[in-house]
């Protein structure tokens, strides 16, 4: 509950930032843009503190569960948003595209929180290392995919405006077509090797390492199939980059499809049973134990934020004891 509240804290700050950005459609002032940048920066700092705390509490980089990975992904995307916004020549509407994506990812993360049940104790150090590397590569690949998607959206919007000769809106400046296309191209170029390495490590782990502790995940697992489809679309995208006929809107359309597969890959474990995120524990005891661990992490996080170490330790222990009884 406490973590949920704080995810809500920075997600809410991003929503407020988005709201400020949206005011530029109605109020002819740049204050909305300045406020939006300030709120985004604030939300990013809060989320950074939250992730740092999570790392300290769990003793590993938070990329081991879908919930953690999505939090880190949204944090990276917000950093990219801030970087692009502050490096633009004039107040551009980049936040209008990235912030909704960030908020949507945080919402999926919230849904995914209860399904994230990795049991680390069954793996040895070597498998853990490669498991984290697998997650890390895929996470960075996903961040690049999101950037490709967002820049593709900006390209589509600007292209649509210019093709249909619509007058520009005051205060809402989009990046130039060339700029959006360049971001899209870079993002695809970066995403492809990251996803390829991530998936390859995952495949090797599945065949070799996971066999040590149990049976490997079936190749027909929905998550594996969806991730493979996403990789295939990216392979087509990389190929398309070298074909003149596939420039502009067509490449952007393919980027959208790749992003759709990415979202599908994230959310598939929420809809269909998948072995990827660990066996679903059905017994009550296991569920209770997992809930208790989460409760402990939540309360520890609360204590970390408020820095009243002695009192908070007593508070943590008493709540956890209460939970056990």
């Amino acid at each position: 509950m406490m973590i949920g509240l704080r995810v809500l804290c920075f997600a809410g700050t991003y929503a407020l930032a988005l709201g400020c950005d949206l005011t530029r459609f109605f109020l002819q002032t740049r204050r909305g843009w300045h406020l939006s940048v300030a709120l985004t920066a604030l939300g990013w700092l809060v989320q950074g503190a939250y992730l740092a705390n999570l790392t300290i509490q769990t003793h590993h980089i938070p990329v081991t569960t879908l919930f953690e990975s999505l939090l880190v992904l949204s944090w990276i995307l917000t950093a990219i948003d801030l970087y692009l916004t502050l490096h633009a020549r004039k107040p551009t509407a980049i936040g209008l595209f990235i912030l909704p994506t960030v908020i949507a990812i945080l919402m999926i993360a919230e849904f995914a929180r209860s399904t994230s049940t990795w049991n680390w104790s069954q793996w040895n150090d070597r498998v853990r290392f490669w498991g984290i590397t697998h997650g890390f590569f895929l996470l960075l690949g996903a961040a690049a995919t999101c950037v490709a998607f967002v820049s593709g959206l900006m390209y589509m919007k600007q292209s649509n405006k210019l093709k249909h000769k619509k007058p520009p809106r005051f205060g809402v400046v989009l990046p130039s077509l060339e700029q959006s296309e360049r971001w899209n191209r870079w993002a695809i170029t970066i995403a492809f090797p990251l996803l390829t390495f991530g998936l390859l490590i995952g495949m090797i782990l599945n065949v070799a390492a996971r066999g040590e502790a149990g049976r490997p995940i079936a190749w027909t697992d929905p998550k594996i199939l969806s991730a493979s489809a996403m990789w295939f679309v990216f392979a087509v995208l990389i190929h398309a980059r070298f074909r003149p006929a596939m420039r502009g809107r067509r490449v952007v359309a393919l980027t959208m499809i790749a992003f759709a597969f990415l979202v599908f890959t994230w959310s598939i474990t929420l809809i269909l049973p998948s072995e990827h995120d660990g066996p679903k524990s059905r017994d009550k005891e296991s569920r209770n134990s997992h809930s208790l661990n989460r409760l402990k992490t939540d309360v520890d996080s609360f204590a970390f934020i408020f820095r009243s170490s002695d009192d908070s330790k007593i508070l943590v222990e008493s709540i956890v004891q209460g939970g056990r009884s």
Partner: peptide, 22 residues
């Protein structure tokens, strides 16, 4: 925003070029 948007054909052309190219 009283200073926004150009008023001559030539300067509008420049704005368009900026919308297309970086």
């Amino acid at each position: 925003g009283i200073d926004q948007g150009k008023l001559s054909v030539a300067s509008v052309a420049v704005d368009l070029a900026r919308d297309v190219f970086d």
